[in-house]
């Protein structure tokens, strides 16, 4: 549905987006991650036709956004960053305005408004002026506007920004459900959201794509992925570490924490080890040594760690170690 090829955008001499290519099909939810100023919003603005690219090509549903903007834009529902809305209108009036520009009139319009009001829980503020809405409600109003015509493509720039935890949860579920038969791109700074809602994630940093894969694949890049943590009762930290270090398929062992009664230790796998092997080796050693094991599990790897290791400049990484 969305095809982006060698997309670049410069503002003056500043390169905001640098040679990005990706595509999103129906049934996919693509998460857009990246530090502040990475170029996420700029990319989305180009996909929705708000700003023209410096170079590169974008098609939505087969229509080139520059050459054939109207049919392309018809397919897109867009929630811009900061959820702008006309402050001199009521929520109902605003949604009606959006519906009419999407070609929905009279009964169709009413039905569409009714549908999104229910989906976004806006009944309570339906006739309130946008001016007086709380931030979260304004965000939801603008989100409602983006799904009013049940578009095949959704571009959502930080859809959960400013929402309370319940609403965040609702919106995530909504995105996942809608993702079944739409092509969705959304950006976020909340990494759990990626795991909860995305079928694929892209990390951009300083205008370039630095990682692209399913959340599971990305997590595999974590240092932690595949490591085995173990909690042993009544042993000295040093002995545990020494014994664990003898495991042949382990890269190294480290003590995470210790207190009076127990020791938390972690063994990191060698690059080529299969999942499960390391855990078994740790279990064997514990059995041989007669350790009292309280807990033993294989770590999954964490996205935030991957994110940090990919996007932090090397100098900062050194300092934070």
């Amino acid at each position: 549905m969305i095809k982006v090829q060698n997309l670049s955008k410069s503002f003056g001499s500043k390169v905001a987006v640098n040679d990005i290519s990706f595509s999103v099909e129906r049934g996919e939810v693509l998460g857009f991650l990246g530090p502040n100023g990475a170029g996420k919003s700029t990319t989305m603005r180009m996909i929705t036709g708000f700003i023209p690219p410096t170079s590169g090509k974008i098609t939505v549903g087969g229509f080139d956004i520059l050459e054939n903007p109207i049919p392309a834009k018809r397919l897109i529902g867009y929630l811009p960053e900061n959820a702008p809305a006309y402050t001199d209108m009521t929520v109902y009036g605003f949604l009606g305005f959006a519906a009419e520009l999407r070609g929905l009139y009279k009964d169709e319009k009413k039905k569409a408004i009714h549908r999104v009001v229910e989906m976004c829980f806006l009944e309570a503020v339906l006739h309130q002026s946008v001016d007086t809405l709380s931030k979260g409600y304004r965000h939801r109003t603008c989100f409602a506007q983006s799904i009013i015509h049940d578009a095949a493509v959704l571009i959502l720039d930080e859809p959960t920004d400013g929402l309370d935890p319940n609403q965040k949860h609702e919106v995530r579920n909504l995105i996942r459900q809608m993702g079944a038969n739409k092509a969705i791109v959304f950006s976020t700074h909340i990494l759990e959201e990626v795991e909860a809602a995305c079928s694929r994630a892209i990390i951009i940093d300083r205008g370039r794509i630095v990682a692209n894969g399913t959340p599971e694949e990305l997590k595999q890049k974590s240092d932690l992925a595949g490591a085995v943590s173990v909690r042993v009762l009544g042993m000295s930290a040093e002995t545990v570490r020494q014994k664990l270090n003898q495991i042949s398929i382990g890269r190294k062992a480290a003590i995470v924490k210790e207190d009076v009664t127990s020791v938390w230790a972690r063994v990191y796998p060698q690059a080529n080890s299969r999942n499960g092997d390391l855990a078994r080796s740790v279990a064997e050693i514990s059995a041989k040594e007669g350790w009292k094991i309280e807990e033993l599990h294989t770590e999954e790897g964490r996205l935030d760690e991957v994110f940090r290791s990919i996007t932090l400049p090397d100098t900062v990484k050194e300092e934070s170690k």
Binding site: R45, F50, N82, P84, A85
Partner: peptide, 14 residues
């Protein structure tokens, strides 16, 4: 000022 320009100009209108 409101940023609604972005909304308006990404609608399927000229």
């Amino acid at each position: 000022r409101l940023g609604t320009l972005e909304l308006l100009l990404t609608m399927p209108i000229t």
